[in-house]
Design a protein around this nucleic acid. Sequence first.
DNA 1: CGATCGCTTGAGCAAAATCAAACCTCGTGG
DNA 2: CCACGAGGTTTGATTTTGCTCAAGCGATCG
Lengths: 254, 254
Amino acid sequence: MSEHLIRKLERFVQLSDDERTALQAVGSGRVRSFGPREDVIQEGAPPSCTRLLVSGYACRYRTLPDGRRQIVSLFVPGDFCDPHVFVLQEMDHSIATLSGARIAEVSKDEVIGLTERFPRITRAFWWDSLVTEAILREWIVSVGRRSARERVAHQFCALYVRQRAVGLTDEGECDMPLTQAELAEALGITTVHANRTLQRLRAEGLISLKSNRLVFPDFEALARTALFSTAYLHLGREGEAFDAPRRLTVPVEV
Amino acid sequence: MSEHLIRKLERFVQLSDDERTALQAVGSGRVRSFGPREDVIQEGAPPSCTRLLVSGYACRYRTLPDGRRQIVSLFVPGDFCDPHVFVLQEMDHSIATLSGARIAEVSKDEVIGLTERFPRITRAFWWDSLVTEAILREWIVSVGRRSARERVAHQFCALYVRQRAVGLTDEGECDMPLTQAELAEALGITTVHANRTLQRLRAEGLISLKSNRLVFPDFEALARTALFSTAYLHLGREGEAFDAPRRLTVPVEV
DNA sequence: CGATCGCTTGAGCAAAATCAAACCTCGTGG
DNA sequence: CCACGAGGTTTGATTTTGCTCAAGCGATCG
């Protein structure tokens, strides 16, 4: 069930059949289904387990005492919400779905077992968490230094490339699971301003967006106006040197 | 030499003497000295090793192609710059000193050896990296949703609490190693605006700041205006259940 | 058919950016 | 000892970006 996770990790290292099988198992334990815009776990709650987004879209957010809300991460299928949270006593942020979603609950022991048995998976998890941090940093750069127009463009570029990395895009288009209000909460602007900014990007022919589907008539142009570079996503098979040997016989697809 | 690191990790779990000794060793290998405002490693370079800030202050930053710069992390003594970077081929951000600083270079093998021999240290490193991520998220919240005044206040509160956690504060005062221009680059505002905001906080009696020394006449009041909470720093001995047994004889201080 | 949710529009306003210049302080070298 | 200069800080005037408030529009769903 965690085919997206496997696909993502293999953007870093080639896994062995055993490793793939073990990862499959992880994503097929307790899988819970959620409707759109439901809280998965709230700030202050004890983090009972690690979560893996199997399908659909979700986000992490923080709410200030006076109600201001900031979305600080987006999850696409294959994303792990904090592989190691279980060392903490309580969540310092909330996780909510955006669309309907299926989320696998992975116990502490499963995570530890996996990393103890498969050093290559451990290494791939490290890579994944470094990329997660890099995404957070780039988010800060957006909110801190990019104009509203650049921010929207940048978030859309990132969303596309991340979905493509797990095989969820069509040519030049992808899902955009956020409402304009949520997009605004992610980018540190207001709903009204997000709306006007979207209109401008549409008018400029850089994007087209209807019913949660985002189309890029000229991705390169959008990336240029966003000052977007894929470097921070480290999708270039950087763990190649540690690839599992490829099998000569083709394994049967499950 | 890594007494600050040890002190920080012990905000999470009590370590054994062996573990403390092993950590001491890590911080006493190749230690390099830097002047203020020097690059330690630049974006694009291969990350040869992990770095531990032994003394002084440093930061992480990203520069956009047109020169806009955003500081995305501050390091205080005892902070690790990316325990696992070595899985990546190239840095996606730069690291620079703010003040003069001493930085220990820790090889991949040392990190791996340490975590293989001492599960408690592994757990403490997980905690540390979760806190590092939480700091990034809170940074996004600041830049995305807090006013300039709240941002400055929040950064100062965080700086104080982080320095206190490693034993570097005096009562109600701490170092503030950033120039106003750097503070602005960290908070996503301009130098001019940072200056006016500082003046306002001073006038309101919330801070006093001269020659890199920050004094808090009323920390609680500042924390309130910043909407600052220490929860995300997880300093409450959350790993207590895994403490090493305390020795009955007092070990000799080194 | 009415209610709700998400999107859109307009007018006025506030926060922060920009530009430009001056000032202060501290270390350096004449 | 003083002049000089560099780096950091401060100030003022002006413009821009994005925010606020308020209302209307248009689907979709019970």
